[in-house]
Amino acid sequence: MNDAAILSVTGLRARVADEDLHILRGVDLTIRPGEIHAIMGPNGSGKSTLAKVVAGHPAYEATGGSVTFRGEDLLDMEPDERSQAGVFMAFQYPVEIPGVSIANFLRTSLQARLEDDEELDLFDFQELLMERMELLDMDPSFAQRPVNDGFSGGEKKRNEILQMAVLKPSLALMDETDSGLDIDALKIVAQGVNTLRQENPDMSVLLITHYQRILNYIIPDMVHVMFRGRIVESGGPEVAMELEARGYEEYRKAHVA
């Protein structure tokens, strides 16, 4: 069964590097090509940590279990190797890179995927960028702005979606992409993801979110509830609806009991 999985997480334990406390305490998760999985959970439950560990954030350290991506050991790879293998993370808080335009940033990202002696064709790149921006209904001048420098929250998230569109990952990790967005911005982001999914139905998505709201626009195949470093419940979209109604109280009680 795991052969068909694009991402397979088994018994994953992880902590902030050099700290004792484990944030992930045995996570199991399987995502197949084309599936959308949502992970919900209260603050501090470990859902963002899961995305960061999968993407290779240096602040975290996996101490047990495994993460395989298309059968390859992901934990053994550097973040750039994971990216080149097809993993993409849309950041909750994208950082600013002053003086570097989005176009230059993306060109460098694509150039990094080529062999040392290969040079990215600038005209091809320009064409790709324009085509991608058109697909997402973005103004071409956006690509000339320095990466996230002085961007509004909505612009930062749109920039993440644009990068996803250009890099064409097979697994997108969306780390609370919906937080801090008003409803219009949320719709634009969701529309972007859906457009990319239409184009490539095999693209899988792991959506980390606090709120059920975004799941009205990006319909998940599976919803998982994460609590204190473990997935405690999994099911269809109805899980999210129930959670919205009930809150996390019963997990808390169960945990205490």
Binding site: P58, E78, D80, S83, F88, V100, S109, A112, L167
Partner: peptide
Amino acid sequence: FYLMSRGMDEAEAMALIVRG
């Protein structure tokens, strides 16, 4: 990490930050 998660290795990421 942000730059590396887009596929650049550490040196490329550094160079881009410095150039910017």
